[in-house]
């Protein structure tokens, strides 16, 4: 259930940025989630509606992009791609590995509605 905290953090980041841009509404949010994190998309979606209610992001869609995990086998020095369940070196079978990528999790971008800009004609006399 740590996804509740993660969903709240995503919301805080998105709303702060949308406000700074002068948005009236957040339409969608794109989040990149590394394969070595234990964040579950379905679970984040489950909490999303609850945390976003009553905010600029109410009714918005949340999209996830999975970033590949990469591990370095410290036994045979093979670098290999991985998902979160398979952490074993495909070459030597070793589990002694160092994560090179896949622990990241960030808000990539947001799509926002902007208020119509009021245009005033300058009258020069």
């Amino acid at each position: 259930m740590h996804e509740l905290s993660v969903a709240q953090s995503i919301l805080d980041i998105a709303v702060a940025r949308a406000r700074a841009e002068g948005a009236t509404r957040i339409r969608s949010i794109r989040v990149t989630v590394g394969a070595l994190t234990t964040y579950v998309d379905e679970s984040l979606r489950f909490y999303w509606d609850a945390v976003s209610e009553g905010t600029l992001a109410e009714g918005s869609a949340i999209e996830f992009a999975r970033a590949d995990g990469r591990l370095l086998c410290l036994g045979c020095r093979t670098e290999f791609a991985t998902n979160e369940v398979d952490l074993q070196c495909p070459e030597c079978g070793g589990l002694w590995t160092q994560p090179l990528a896949g622990n990241e999790c960030f808000v990539d971008s947001i799509v926002i509605d902007m208020a119509e800009i009021e245009r005033k004609e300058a009258v020069c006399r």
């Binding site: 953090s9 805080d12 960030f106 947001i110 799509v111 902007m114 119509e116």
Partner: peptide, 17 residues
């Protein structure tokens, strides 16, 4: 109504960190 895509690239646990 104008729609705009904003690049954010902010780590989710940055404020915790």
């Amino acid at each position: 109504m104008p729609v705009k895509t904003v690049q954010v690239t902010e780590k989710i646990l940055a404020s915790n960190a």
